[in-house]
Amino acid sequence: MNELGLHFNLLISAILFCIGVAGVLTRKNTIVIFMCIELMLNAVNLTLVTFSVYLNNINGQIFVFFVMAVAAAEAAVGLAIILSVFRNFLTVESDEVAELAG
């Protein structure tokens, strides 16, 4: 922590988060979008861990474990959804699944 500094860690997590956002917004493949969401979650995890160390408070790290657990569950549900989308539409491209268009 001391070697790299608070700002460095936060900057890394912000960059990771932005990469995630950019990926979610620009990519069409649902699986890639899904991966990018994972990236965003991990960026948040990094922030939490950083502050936990910085503030000397264990809560942040505990929270990270929760996030990881939720992310795992989410991965299971998300992949199941993607699978069933593929079965119905024979594609995982997000633009082509536009049944809710107003």
Binding site: L25, K28, T30, S94, D95, A98, L100, A101, G102
Partner: peptide
Amino acid sequence: KKIHSGTMKSSL
């Protein structure tokens, strides 16, 4: 209704 394009990208 234009907002409601139904594509994930626009909503996101």
